[in-house]
Design a protein around this nucleic acid. Sequence first.
DNA 1: TGGGGTTAT
DNA 2: ATAACCC
Length: 483
Amino acid sequence: VEPEEEGGRDEEEDESWVMALADAGATGCSQGAPEPEEPGGLTGFHDQVVPTPSSSSRVIVHLDLDCFYAQVEMISNPELKDKPLGVQQKYLVVTCNYEARKLGVKKLMNVRDAKEKCPQLVLVNGEDLTRYREMSYKVTELLEEFSPVVERLGFDENFVDLTEVVEKRLPQLQSDELSSVTVSGHVYNNQSINLQDILHIRLLVGSQIAAEMREAMYNQLGLTGCAGVASNKLLAKLVSGVFKPNQQTVLLPESCKDLIHSLNHIKEMPGIGYKTAKRLEALGINSVHDLQTFSSKILEKELGISVAQRIQKLSFGEDNSPVTPSGPPQSFSEEDSFKKCSTEVEAKKKIEELLGSLLNRVCQDGRKPHTIRLVIRRYSSEKHCSRETRQCPIPSHVIQKLGTGNYDAMTPILDILMKLFRNMVNVKMPFHLTLLSVCFCNLKAINTTKRGPIDNYLTPSLSTTSHSGKRSFKMKDTHMEDF
DNA sequence: TGGGGTTAT
DNA sequence: ATAACCC
């Protein structure tokens, strides 16, 4: 890595090669073959010579908070800190602290089983996610200070693409410092570091940044967690779990094979879920090696080309999916499950409660939802929890009532929801529901600009739907009769 | 199994 | 609207 002196130009101008590198690169562990698309050496940009990075490899970190809900509860009430603690939703212990785990409590364990295993177990109710959600976004926002490229996965995990941050730090290192770069945390497999290898150097700098992130999370929010640093999301996620509470691990390329073969079953591969695992099992595919060596053609016929190609790449540790900045949420929902709901009146009460909380959340967010959805789960003896949904646009005059802090929108929306309800459930026949959920989605930024009458017919889309600056024009939701 | 989320079809 | 995936 040359300290760039050359053109005597300002250092912040042409970083397009860094951008190009940020969305390239699967970099798994299929036998050393370099990515075909990358040149090496020097590339000309305009009249200037810019060093290309010696490979298109990315530096990705996966951060995973330790037993997140339990940590939040222990911060809320420090007296719980040294006790075995479980967070309860309905009759489940959805997560628990390490004190409880030592005593045999597991995640998603039945409350009765947990109490049996551990009679001293302290339980707190975690059905209201508000405080968890708020803390979760504080974590994401903290990470965004290191790099804006942060992707959330659930409430307690984040991916950050550190490629550019690492590239910025490298030239700052003097050549004598380059040979004394050290790792922060564990190296997977205890693999020896080669300081001549630029890939190693970059990952080690990534591990230092990961340590800074964990320090910041602890100092500013009081939260501990694990981190994994690797060349793609799959590997970062797999390696983050190797040393478990409150530790971090970096994967060097040479140990990729060992990491993916440490999985005992393909279901453990993130991206291969319950359904796909079952179908693979039916094909006799059980291990990572089975999937690697299975006929691509047959797999494509069996699962479709898209899934087949994606998961077979995963089996080699290859994952070219970018870290996609999550930004603000795409939807807000609240749900409640119960043993039985069998009358319309009862359903209406529950829906009203869900709606009340949602209106608060939507109000705080500032954006306006343009679609509302109702979800139900019907009782059925063993059918795998299939849910049914109905959704519809929110009338524009109701949207305007949202976010005013009072509940003007409550009654009209509740009326809409009950229409959706009766569309799904024949209330003249007996029914038995076990879950109700209300979801606001299709969120759009508020319209701050003043508009003339013409603007209401055809208006530039202000939606933040991320299709990169494309200015699509849409008809407004309003009906022509409104004018 | 809870109470959330996302994207693809 | 559903189905798959993630936590």
